[in-house]
Amino acid sequence: MIEVKGLTRYYGDFPAVRDVSFNVGENMIVGFLGLNGAGKSTVLKVLAGLLMPSAGVVRINGVDVLEAPDSARAAIGYLPEEPPLYKEMRVNDFLRWCGQIRGMSKGDVDKRLPEVLKICQLTHVADRVIHELSHGYKKRVGIAQAIIHRPKLVILDEPISGLDPVQIVEMREVLKALKTTCTVLVSSHILSEISQTCDRLMVLHDGKIVAEGSETELRDRLRGKLAVEFILRGEQEVVESVLSGHPGLDNHSVRAENDLIFAHVEFSGDAREDLAKAFVEKGLGLRGMADHSSSELESVFIGLTRETPDMPKPEEVEAA
C-alpha cells in the first residue's frame, strides 16, 4: 500500500526528515511515534501529497507521488491535527462537497453519506452547522471527510489530541472500524494510547526512524518488561504455586486484600493469556487483569529516542 525509500525533506536548509524508508501493507493501523519536532507530521504530509519530497521515492498504492500527484491523492484521506472544516457549512453538505471534490458522483455521495455518518457517530448531528459542534464532534467530522470517498489510505495526524477520555475511547472504536476497509496511519506522542490501537509502531527521532515493530518487539528491543496485575479469587498459595511454576516470568509479588488476591507479574515476552489459562485451570476465579506496563512503555519510548542511529536493528537483536 505504501512504499517509501530514502525519503528526505528539507525546510530551507533544515532536514526535517532524513533518509526514511518503510513499507506498509493493506488493512493495518500503523502508528508514528515521536517527540514534538521528530518529523512525524512532515512524513504524513508528504504521504498525503501536501508536501513534495526533497529526495527519495514515495509510492501510494503503486502510484509515485512525484509522477502522478493528483492520482496518488485520490487514494488518500487526510486529517491534520486541527480538523480543516468550513465551519459555516452543515455537516452533511460539507461531507457531500468533500466527496464530490474527490471524484465521487452526487449519487455515490448520497449512498455513502449515511454509512460514513454511522461509522463516525455523526448521524444525529448531520444537519447541524459545523461551528456549533464540540471539539470531539469536529474531529469526527474531520475523520468523516477523510473517509467519505472510500480511500485506500487514511492518514490521521494526532487524532486524539484535545479529546476528553470518553471521546478518546470513542475515537479508538472509530479507528478500529476503519481498519476493516483501509490502511490507517496515525501519529501521536501519547505512547500508551497509540499502542492500544496500532498493529505496528514506528518511532521517529530527529527526522529518522529509530525503531519499528509491534509493541512487544519494541519492548524487547530495550528489554522492557510487560507488567500486569491479575485480580483473583481463591487461595493465595495456589496463586503462588502457579506463578512459581510458570517459566519466563521475571518477577512477581502476591498480596491479599478484601478477600481478593492481587498478583503483580512482570515478564519480557507476552505470557498474559498463558497465565490467565493456568489460573483458571487451577480453579481460581479471574476477576480482572490490569496493564501496569504503560509507565515502563514510556521508559522504552524515552530510551528509543535517546538512542544513537547506529543501534542494532530488531532482526540483529533477534539473531543475537
Binding site: 498525503a48 501529497g49 501536501l50 493528483d70 492520482s71 491523492r73 485520490a74 488518500i76 484521506g77 487526510y78 491534520p80 480543516p84 472544516l85 468550513y86 468533500c98 471534490i101 474527490r102 471524484g103 471527510q145
Partner: peptide
C-alpha cells in the same frame, strides 16, 4: 482549510 484542497485530487 487549504489542507482540504491540498489533499484532494
Amino acid at each position: 482549510t487549504i489542507v482540504l484542497l491540498d489533499s484532494s485530487p
